[in-house]
Design a binder for these strands. Structure first.
Lengths: 203, 203
DNA sequence: TGTACATCAGTGAACGCGCGTTCACTGATGTAC
DNA sequence: TGTACATCAGTGAACGCGCGTTCACTGATGTAC
């Protein structure tokens, strides 16, 4: 625990994970390597092998931590919002987008196919924490819309998920003018689907 | 033109581009390299340098070709559909999604930040072809919804774009059960936002 | 129509780089007795 | 409480790999005259 200058690190696994989480935001997914992570921690490049045999193991640990932060980001926004269906959707979307904005590299890692080992049960469980947030905001909206079957509720979940997920991707890929984006060749700013569903305001 | 066994290739630039487009779908973005592209064409690894000084130049050419196919995919679906606002949106979405499904690697390349040089005017023009499709399907919908200001129209464009773009990403990243996806930890299938806007059907 | 020559496209060897991986090692930890 | 020893975490040198890049070269093309 204490940062003694000792031969054994003491908590190398967590230190490597933290370094990897920092590096992916600085250099992007491409710029990530086991050697760089080790260098950042100040440890020899062969040291990580005991804790993360391959890059894939490290990525799985990163994504697992990422999904936990992701779900918490949505839950925190929802806790501060009014408990009405429309405000709960808006709050969850704020949490979704603010997470993507703050962790664009990790966000990509979490959602890009073939990077992670999805047979890892810890990863699946943490990913479900995120999906649970979606289910919780969709249930009231589905009831409002008169959607009763399981299939219809699932469809609404996919609709809302696609909506916010697409928005998140367009923002982190600088295709929507989220901040000042001189390079962005596309105009436009987002519209409120929650308002559209509930007939609140004018989109 | 003719496939003669000659020292000079004759049309190496296009051959390299075609090889790169094939390789990106086989190996993904990560698996792409100038050496592999050259090898696929059957040319020495230094040969591409005359036509594409860096990987970035090649990627720009790939994305430019990609955006053209992308816009065509939407236009073709729309041409076969009824000219009503709701069917035009649905058709454009079909084109958007079918392009993403058929060219997932290229789709990622086209939309991921920092991979392309967006000061390239040819790239920008072809990308605008895609955005124009979006503008064309949005105008009638905006009129239907009573959106009159430029800002409101742009917002609707962003809404629809986020919707279909998120759906496309979730599909190519195997998060929505588009085909058989045993590994996918999330349930659900998409819902029809065009129907939602126009009150057609029951989503 | 033929010759000379400049231009250009592609070759193949060589370079240095960062990467993951292996391996014999060494220093610290912790347990058995 | 003290000693012996097994276990484990981290070291540092070495390996082969694919990569982009450079460079002197060579063969083909096309233009001038």
């Amino acid at each position: 625990m204490a940062p003694k200058k000792t031969y054994h690190h003491g908590d190398l696994r967590n230190a490597l994970l933290a370094a990897a989480l920092a590096l992916i935001e600085e250099n992007g997914l491409e710029g990530l390597s086991l050697r760089k992570v080790a260098a950042r921690v100040g440890v020899s490049h062969a040291a990580p092998e005991h804790h993360f045999p391959t890059m894939r193991h490290l990525m799985n640990a990163m994504a697992t931590a990422g999904f936990e932060m992701f779900a918490r980001s949505m839950a925190e926004e929802r806790a501060q919002a009014l408990p009405t269906p429309v405000e709960q959707i808006r709050a969850a979307f704020r949490g979704y987008l603010s997470y993507a904005r703050q962790h664009p590299g990790l966000f990509r890692l979490m959602f890009t196919a073939n990077l992670l080992d999805w047979t890892d049960e810890a990863l699946r469980e943490h990913a479900r924490l995120g999906y649970r947030q979606l289910e919780e905001i969709c249930a009231p909206a589905a009831a409002f819309m008169g959607l009763q079957s399981e299939a219809e509720r699932r469809s609404l979940e996919s609709l809302l998920w696609s909506q916010v997920h697409g928005h998140a991707h367009l923002v982190i890929d600088q295709k929507l003018p989220d901040a000042a984006d001189a390079d962005c060749p596309f105009p436009g700013k987002p519209l409120d689907i929650a308002g559209l569903i509930f007939g609140v305001g004018r989109c």
